[in-house]
Structures are given as C-alpha cells and as structure tokens.
Amino acid sequence: MTRLLAALLLVGVLASPAAAAPLGAGPEDVANRMSGEIMSPFCPGVTLHECPSQEATDLRDRIEGWAAAGWSEERIMNELVAQYGDGIRAVPPSDGGGIVAWLLPGVVAVGGALFAGTLARRWTRQRERDRAGEDLEARRSITPEQRRRLAGELAALEARSAGQGRRL
C-alpha cells in the first residue's frame, strides 16, 4: 500500500502544472515558480501568482530582485516565512503534522478502493453461490424429459441470438 501511495503521489507531482513548468534558472523564472508556491498575503485564499493586486506584483518583483541578487529559493522562502508567517507556504509541511494532510487523501482513496473491491468480490461470490443453488434447485424440480426440451429450446434460442448478433 505504501508503494501505491508513493506512486499516486509521484503521478500527482509529475502531473502538476508546477512540475510541468520548465525549471528555468533566471530570476524571472524563479519568481514565476515561487509565486505559484506561496499564498498571497494580499488576496486571501489564492497564491501570489493568481493575486491581481499591485502589492502582489510588487512582492513578485522583490522575489525576482532577491533571485537576481543570487539568493537561493530556500533563502527566499525563509525570508518570506519570517516576514509573513508559516501560512505563506501554499502547501502543508511534509513533516510533523503536515504529513497527515498529504497522506490522508491517498489513504482514503486506496482504502475506499480496497473496501469497494472487497464488496465487489463478495457480491460476485454470492452471485455464484446463488447460481449454483438455482441450478441445483432447477435440476431437482424438472424431469429428464423437461430438461431435454429445455436444452433443445435454449440451443435454438442461442442459434437465433447468434444470427441476430451477426446482423447487428
């Protein structure tokens, strides 16, 4: 299950637009990338990248300036956290309590799939048991003569169905 979870997360990360964006190293690329990874202090609920306010543009320019001055992305992020608090990170931390945030959706998805799979298997087996019971009941309740007639009619029906299928 751990492998499956890891695979799911990997696919998610690979599929995300952030992962898809070319990892340019220029100051503008760094600013573009990081503005999608931090929440805007000026437009609650959206990242800096999506915030249309002038203050957001100014902060983006400051990030570009820091990148141009040779700051690493980690240093820029630390500076932003120092100025605006932990809430500026657009994702929960990947350690401590934050790991629950990351893992729970995967656990629910995999748990749900396993539960549904178990139910489906049980229902399929139940159907097989029902069918076996029905067959036994049917064999007990009809005479050999009736069974021969039934087999004949079934064969004729199948032949007709096959003919119709070809026409379809």
């Binding site: 998610g12 952030a18 999608g36 990242t47 809430g87 990170r89 657009a90 994702v91 929960p92 945030a101």
Partner: peptide, 30 residues
C-alpha cells in the same frame, strides 16, 4: 480535506497554515 485543513491545523496547533494549488494538483490530478 484540503479546504478545511487550515481550520483543523489552526484548531490543533494554533498556527495558521495554508493549502494552495500545489497540494490540490498533487492529490487531485491522479
């Protein structure tokens, strides 16, 4: 979960955290 996690985290730890597009893209896209 991603929408209410900041409320839960704040209630439990007292620290306001955020959940933004990178999280939702990672868990939703697969």
């Amino acid at each position: 979960w991603g929408t209410i996690y900041p409320i839960i985290a704040e209630a439990v730890t007292g620290v306001r955290l955020s959940v933004g597009p990178p999280f939702f893209n990672a868990v939703f896209i697969p």
